[in-house]
Design a protein around this nucleic acid. Structure first.
Lengths: 195, 195
DNA sequence: GCAGAAACCTAACACCCCTAGGCAGTGGTC
DNA sequence: GACCACTGCCTAGGGGTGTTAGGTTTCTGC
């Protein structure tokens, strides 16, 4: 019996690659086992079940993504930081669509087991927004808006939601310009009047 | 043999309800057949396969959603129209999460078979944006940004991505305020300088 | 009333998730 | 060096799902 040397970590890594190649929804324990030349049942010694595997991918990916964003943002502020953040975010998602999709799963707090990725990601966002002079609860609102826009854009881009009429990269740049303007002119509280 | 009276339309409708209840990813032909008291194989006379069923849900849902938006937006312009559009969009998605998820599928042009939903949806968006004085290619860019933000927000909201710290509805309202400001101050072309 | 279409069925295959229990190398202990 | 516990991987098997092929029963239009 030849032992391949499976580990939860090696499985997670390979599963992430596989998810990037064929899509997270098509990631299957059988396929992963096949890639290692091993039977499906063998994986259950290392990984609780399919959901567990996906959660592991998500936690690992959110760390990698946050690292990338942190590096990009380091030493920048204002629009520089916004663009660096956004491009790093989008870059990771486009290069690793499967892993990125995993980060969007609903994950219960007890599954997270204190992974640094999510927390640091929030801190990075808030730091960037504070440079625009925002304070709570505007920080939360603007943070939600930014995350929504980034995620929505990438989701639509990856799912082919944009026609091929206009360059997606150009739209992205313009959108970042617009978001910068938005953050600089964030409406003050109780400013809900129209026009 | 008791006939239930299956039709592609009835199946699509029921499948949409089922998807709203249990989630699009858990929508299964077996479950749908069970709901009708029928064997899985029987569905294949009406529907090509699972993907075909999902596409049908998507096309039907995008029509329903567009109707709702069109009604909400009718006779409004500027911020009124923006808020009406956004609330109708979000309202549909929150009430029909399964059907909404279907509308986000990658659908090939030949599968669409000229469904009015998607086209009208684009027209509605563009009409709203023209009221802000935008012209191409800003129309496309702003449209993409709006769609991204709406979709991203709802996706995060539905997937529990927002903590329970601050009221989601309040954040949504503030985001719409901000988007209104953004559209009024849409940066003119070649205005990419910083700060 | 009949022919053909339509609705629904059974049977069968492939793929997947997951559990239970078994065996064979591996490393530690005396 | 012999023993033993551990663990990595196995086989076997049950249950769910998607899909095709080909039958049988009911409905419908003439």
């Amino acid at each position: 019996m030849v032992r391949v040397g499976l580990t939860a970590a090696r499985l997670t890594e390979a599963a992430g690659e596989l998810a990037d190649e064929i899509g997270l929804d098509k990631l299957t324990l059988s396929a992963l086992a096949r890639r290692f030349g091993v039977k499906d049942a063998s994986l259950y010694s290392h990984v609780k079940n399919l959901r567990d595997l996906r959660v592991r991918i998500a936690l690992r990916a959110s760390e990698g993504m946050t690292d990338r964003i942190a590096t990009a943002v380091a030493g920048r502020a204002g629009k520089d930081a916004l663009v660096a953040f956004a491009d790093a975010y989008r870059g990771y998602a486009l290069e690793h669509p499967g892993r990125y999709a995993a980060t969007q799963m609903r994950i219960e707090p007890e599954e997270v087991a204190d992974s640094a990725g999510f927390r640091r990601s929030v801190e990075l966002t808030y730091g960037m927004l504070r440079a625009y002079g925002l304070t709570e609860p505007d920080l939360t609102d603007a943070g939600r808006l930014l995350r929504s826009t980034f995620h929505g854009y990438i989701h639509l881009e990856l799912s082919g939601g944009f026609g091929h009429s206009r360059d997606v990269q150009a739209s992205w740049s313009r959108s970042l310009d617009a978001l910068h303007v938005l953050l600089e002119n964030w409406p003050s509280r109780h400013d809900g009047n129209k026009r």
